[in-house]
Amino acid sequence: MRLFVLLACVCFTYAEEQKLPEARLLSLKKVLNRYLVENRDVSVDYELFNVGDAPALNVKLTDRTFPPSDFDVVSGSLDAKFEKILPGANVSHSLVVRPNKYGLFNFTSAEVTYRISEDSTEERISFTTEPGQGGIMPEVEYERRFSPHYLDWAVFALVSMPSILLPYFLYHSSKSRYEGLVKSKAK
């Protein structure tokens, strides 16, 4: 029995030593906006880290989670390709989309495929992290809460001023006239 355990340990150590170097990609998908708003740009950032000990080759990033019926691509691309990501290196890719509907939306993961080493033809498929569910705010609600509306306030001030200034001017002109009469008499 002891001999068997010893033999197993030796075999395991040998197998570990024989393991070929390979690339391992950790991928991250982030939505950068604090507020997601209908018809306003949403920035999405992808970051790929190679934590393996071989370069990742022919890396393809594909995001199929933004359906054209719900999002317009403003800038960047839903697909990205990197020839090589060296061990310990990282790359990033950005995308700007614009939601054309409001409501809850589940931001799920993008797909990453790559060759694990130069000697291997094996293609590995992995997924990015999921940003999770986010509420897309109606544009009207966003305008109501965050827009400064300087022009609207200016118009209001302009329209409401006559209703305050005109009566005051009429009152003041009469007041000044009669107070002036009293003063001239006193002199």
């Binding site: 009207v140 305008e143 509306h149 306030w153 209001f156 329209v159 409401s160 209703s163």
Partner: peptide, 19 residues
């Protein structure tokens, strides 16, 4: 007349800002 004018002024603010 004055009261009616002043009473309808806030409608602008609620229409434009409060949507």
């Amino acid at each position: 007349g004055n009261a009616a004018i002043v009473a309808i002024l806030p409608i602008w603010l609620f229409y434009r800002i409060q949507q």
